[in-house]
């Protein structure tokens, strides 16, 4: 059953639970939130990595999530295949597209215009607007759900019942994030990426080809983000307007963790998933976006460099 956690028009506040069920509801909300947080973590880690290497804040992150979701929708609706089969396709397809876009971003960020930082930001903002407008034009405002083999199943552990699809998505997310961490910390190329994120000049002096590395990192990030989009579409549903929501998620995590901090992103993403689940359950899902924006904004006012770790 696709849930509508999106900013719905009506405030559908849940009916008050009885005393005995209160703890169960609390646990259920917590676990649901952590599971979603795990999926959010996958693309925010990539987002942070991109910032570290390219020094670009990617507004288009939500666009890649939605594109991944649409890919899953078309694979399941047109080819009558399981939605999860879209995961590898999404990685290869959007990884390739990201690989082509990476050098363009790199060129703009390192161009000799007056404010390259500002121009790169404007470029990803334009890309996001282009993706959103293009998807709205091509596919309209309708919301689509993505059926998978696990849709409708649920898993019961003690008092807590969670949809199977969320568990599976969280498992996938852990595999993706774990793989990414292994790649970053256990391979030579991962070392080059981390070195570049830390100090570009020194990395370049050590023989890292920053331009090619930027293309690879952006491709990797776009691919991972699209995979996360498949998972998100399977859990919730997909329409072109939700991209904004995922861009917000990435920003929220980036601000909480400090821009560029990969480890902090994991913690912040889990926090975000939990906050969202609790606000949706206890206050009403139409308040969840307001709560996230307000938290993000307050964190920026109080501790603008992130509360988990000092950012760049």
């Amino acid at each position: 059953m696709p849930e509508s956690g999106f900013a719905s028009i009506l405030s559908n506040k849940q009916s008050e639970p009885k005393n005995g069920e209160q703890l169960d509801l609390f646990l259920q909300t917590l676990i649901n939130g952590l599971l979603i947080g795990g999926v959010i973590a996958t693309f925010t880690i990539g987002f942070q990595l991109t910032f570290g290497v390219l020094h670009v804040i990617d507004f288009a992150v939500g666009g890649w999530v939605v594109l991944g979701g649409y890919l899953a929708y078309y694979i399941s609706a047109l080819l009558k295949l399981d939605g999860f089969l879209a995961i590898p396709v999404a990685f290869l397809l959007f990884g390739a597209i990201g690989y082509l876009i990476g050098p363009i971003l790199y060129n703009v960020r390192n161009s000799r215009t007056a404010r390259p930082e500002l121009m790169a930001l404007a470029l990803t903002f334009g890309l996001f607007t282009l993706l959103r407008g293009g998807m709205l034009t091509a596919w309209g405002f309708n919301t689509h759900s993505v059926p998978t083999a696990l849709s409708g199943e649920s898993l019961t552990i003690g008092p807590v019942t969670v949809p199977m699809i969320r568990v599976a998505a969280a498992v996938f997310a852990i595999v993706i994030a774990g793989g990414l961490f292994l790649f970053l910390y256990r391979t030579r190329y991962g070392l080059a990426i981390r070195a570049t994120a830390e100090n570009r000049q020194n990395a370049a002096l050590m023989g890292v080809n920053i331009r090619r590395l930027s293309a690879n990192v952006y491709g990797l990030y776009a691919g991972i983000t699209a995979m996360a989009g498949v998972l998100m579409a399977a859990i919730f549903s997909v329409n072109p307007e939700v991209g904004l929501r995922y861009t917000l998620f990435a920003f929220f995590v980036a601000v909480l963790a400090g821009l560029g901090s990969v480890g902090g992103a994991l913690v912040a993403a889990l926090m975000l998933g939990t906050i969202e689940a609790f606000v949706s359950t206890y206050v009403g899902s139409s308040y969840s976006l307001l709560a996230i924006f307000a938290t993000l904004f307050l964190v920026l006012l109080v501790s603008p460099r992130g509360i988990l770790k000092r950012g760049l």
Binding site: A7, L118, L121, L259, L289, L290, F293, A294, V302, P304
Partner: peptide
């Protein structure tokens, strides 16, 4: 006040979040 002291990126995010929060409000 607080965000303009930082790098432009934080300011861009803060203004964007402020506008979206007001919309939701």
């Amino acid at each position: 006040g607080p965000t303009l002291r930082l790098r432009g990126a934080y300011f861009a995010i803060a203004t964007w979040a402020f506008a979206e929060a007001l919309t939701q409000f």
